[in-house]
Amino acid sequence: MKMNETFDQCILKERKACMAEERFSNILRFFCGTHPKCSTDLNWSLNEAKKHVEEEYLIVGLLEDYEATFRLMEILAPSLFKGIMTDYHAAERRKESERYRTNFKMPISAEVRAILRKKLDLTYQFYDFVKTKLELLKKKYDI
């Protein structure tokens, strides 16, 4: 991305900094693991990542749903996460997170949103899978 270039401009000009293929599959590779196919076959990687979430993770939370994620962590693993909600709500912690908020964030255009949606299709499928699992846990524990 060049100085003073918007994210939209970077995507539309197909700059490597914004459009490199590895940028679009990092989360799948993380949850997929170290098998060589995790880096070469994204459809296989998606299925393997889902399998790992099902079999190896107690909970996978979402940044946009911190509170529910933290509440579930307290319930499902209290020896590890007791008091996490108290810490999250602490005034100093709140100030710290505000410090990292993006100022003057420009919304992306519909055109760029469509490009990214297409490029990130498998990642969106994984996100939807994780979100559904989180919603089921929230319902189960009345959160």
Score class of each variant (00 low, 15 high):
residue 4 N to G: 13
residue 6 T to D: 12
residue 10 C to D: 08
residue 11 I to G: 00
residue 13 K to V: 08
residue 14 E to F: 10
residue 14 E to T: 05
residue 16 K to Q: 14
residue 18 C to T: 09
residue 22 E to C: 02
residue 26 N to V: 03
residue 28 L to Q: 03
residue 29 R to N: 01
residue 30 F to I: 06
residue 31 F to S: 02
residue 32 C to P: 00
residue 33 G to H: 03
residue 33 G to R: 02
residue 34 T to F: 07
residue 34 T to E: 15
residue 37 K to G: 07
residue 37 K to N: 12
residue 40 T to Q: 13
residue 44 W to A: 02
residue 44 W to R: 00
residue 45 S to N: 03
residue 46 L to R: 00
residue 47 N to W: 10
residue 49 A to G: 01
residue 50 K to S: 00
residue 52 H to P: 03
residue 52 H to D: 03
residue 54 E to I: 06
residue 55 E to N: 07
residue 55 E to F: 02
residue 57 Y to N: 04
residue 58 L to N: 07
residue 60 V to C: 03
residue 60 V to R: 00
residue 61 G to E: 00
residue 61 G to R: 04
residue 64 E to K: 10
residue 66 Y to C: 06
residue 66 Y to T: 05
residue 66 Y to A: 07
residue 66 Y to Q: 04
residue 68 A to H: 06
residue 68 A to W: 04
residue 69 T to H: 01
residue 70 F to A: 09
residue 70 F to P: 00
residue 71 R to H: 04
residue 73 M to R: 08
residue 74 E to W: 10
residue 75 I to S: 09
residue 77 A to G: 06
residue 80 L to D: 13
residue 81 F to Y: 15
residue 82 K to H: 14
residue 83 G to V: 03
residue 84 I to Y: 01
residue 86 T to F: 12
residue 88 Y to A: 14
residue 89 H to Q: 11
residue 89 H to V: 08
residue 90 A to F: 15
residue 90 A to E: 15
residue 91 A to G: 12
residue 93 R to W: 11
residue 93 R to G: 13
residue 94 R to M: 13
residue 94 R to Q: 15
residue 95 K to Q: 14
residue 98 E to G: 10
residue 99 R to S: 12
residue 99 R to N: 12
residue 101 R to N: 05
residue 104 F to K: 04
residue 104 F to T: 05
residue 104 F to Q: 03
residue 105 K to D: 10
residue 106 M to D: 14
residue 109 S to T: 09
residue 114 A to W: 07
residue 115 I to G: 05
residue 116 L to A: 00
residue 117 R to E: 07
residue 120 L to A: 09
residue 121 D to M: 04
residue 121 D to V: 00
residue 123 T to H: 01
residue 124 Y to C: 02
residue 127 Y to M: 05
residue 127 Y to H: 08
residue 128 D to R: 05
residue 129 F to T: 04
residue 129 F to L: 07
residue 129 F to G: 04
residue 129 F to E: 06
residue 130 V to C: 07
residue 130 V to P: 01
residue 132 T to L: 14
residue 133 K to C: 09
residue 134 L to C: 10
residue 138 K to P: 03
residue 138 K to G: 08
residue 141 Y to V: 07
residue 142 D to K: 14
residue 142 D to N: 14
residue 142 D to Y: 12
residue 142 D to P: 02
residue 143 I to G: 03
